[in-house]
Design a protein around this nucleic acid. Structure first.
Lengths: 249, 249
DNA sequence: ATTTGTACTGCAAATAAATGCAAATTTGCA
DNA sequence: TGCAAATTTGCATTTATTTGCAGTACAAAT
């Protein structure tokens, strides 16, 4: 039985009865009480239940607000988010910039993700807060209401204080010849700073953005190590990028 | 059996049961577990499933709830918030640090407020966002889930880049003899940095915090220009502060 | 105060994942 | 078809994680 199955079982029992107990769960699932204890600890540290002596109960107020989720959990972004996970290893430092695709990655992370995020994306903070093992470092700067990011000279300066193992770059437009381009130059400048301070550079693009162009050039395609899209990696639409030696996922 | 056939098999099994396990698949398809592992790795990197220890599950099974942030509008804080407004003039630069009292100030501002806020308070951003004329500058740093503030050396460094006309300091404990003290020293350090870079220093305290003491000393009372509380300014409980020459509101 | 059930710690065994390598298989091309 | 190159597969080894257990500390109930 997978650990996740036990999670499901615990949660659904909790929803049915309002409470669960270590001893009963242990007998029911044929694992030791310690294991149940650790499961409940994990679920608790992700805010899915409230731990009490002898078991767990439903959290006092559980506002499973789905309105919030829907904004960035659309088809293609789901796929990109799942594909992205494999590039994050425990203990690493990860740059994440702005955009809803980046938020989708965060929303789909495994419950026990353990790494450090350095970001200028304000919308990411409440999402990441749920993952208790993730260290969140915020890059300050001038806040932009539309993009929900902090940008400007200060932000770019801040970026230089870090070296990231991985950089997940949300993109506005990706094109094999003109490279990656942005609509807002403040955002583009942060992207350039992050490129300069990261080891593995991963660009994220859904099909609509693919082969698009904006006016502010961020970088050439060759600077990118991996391109994650919402279509199968062997799709012919990606041939131009494959020929540039970019790993496609 | 072709690799694609195995893929099909895995996916349909996943759709039927919501999960698949390496060992079962291996036995069922007569290939080694390593092969199944690699198949699932491939499917994962195409975003078709979510990998977990021992197998894989459907991507949708990641239940995440989102926190609400509306616990900052209580009694005394309303009063303090309204009293605070008079100190902000159009075009000024204002430091605002952490705490729910600060959030209350923001929530009560007139809609046409026009000034610049420099803050390390993440909870403040969504509140301030609705005031279109307010420029928001975020101070980055290490994000603290409990206080919803960014703190640390980087934050303090950032503060030095600004000079504020007014600093609204949220307090944990205020006492005429021991001055202002904080429970968390990271927060205290940011407060000290802000004190050093601001012209008018305004401390905010509700009656519960008044005359309290914590272990990290932020500053003496004499450093404060104005003390805003939720009780009338001529209340005898404030005599000790009045005698120190602090303006009471 | 004593008893009973619960929680935490460290540890060792079991289990799973990642890695490297060689054999087997498929593919591309003349 | 024949052959080399590339890919896939299974296996052995190493590394990491999970699990159950024993001991102990702790808290509540009698």
């Amino acid at each position: 039985m997978l650990r996740e199955e036990r999670f499901d079982h615990i949660i659904s029992l909790l929803k049915r009865d309002g409470k669960v107990a270590y001893d009963l769960l242990s007998a029911e699932l044929n694992v030791s009480e310690d294991t149940i204890r650790r499961d409940i600890e994990t679920l608790h540290s992700n805010g899915l239940l409230a731990k009490v002596r002898g078991g767990a109960i439903l959290p006092s107020r559980n506002p499973l607000s789905f309105q919030n989720r829907t904004a960035y959990l659309t088809e293609g972004k789901d796929v990109i988010a799942l594909k992205a996970q494999q590039f994050i290893k425990k203990g690493q430092t990860v740059f994440m910039d702005g955009g809803t695709t980046i938020c989708a990655i965060a929303a789909h992370l495994p419950l026990d993700s353990n790494f450090r995020v350095v970001t200028n994306n304000q919308a990411l903070i409440p999402i990441l807060s749920k993952f208790k093992e993730i260290e969140i470092i915020v890059l300050g700067g001038v806040y932009n209401r539309n993009t929900e990011t902090n940008t400007g000279v200060k932000t770019c300066e801040e970026v230089k204080h870090y070296v990231a193992d991985v950089y997940f770059m949300g993109t506005c437009a990706v094109q094999s010849k003109f490279g990656i381009t942005a609509a807002i130059n403040e955002d583009g400048e942060v992207k350039q700073a992050m490129l300069n301070s990261s080891i593995k550079k991963i660009a994220l693009s859904n099909t609509e953005k693919l082969d698009g162009v904006h006016s502010f050039k961020v970088c050439d395609m060759q600077e990118i190590d991996v391109l994650i899209t919402d279509i199968p990696s062997d799709d012919s639409r990606l041939d131009a990028y494959r020929n540039l030696g970019i790993k496609l996922v």
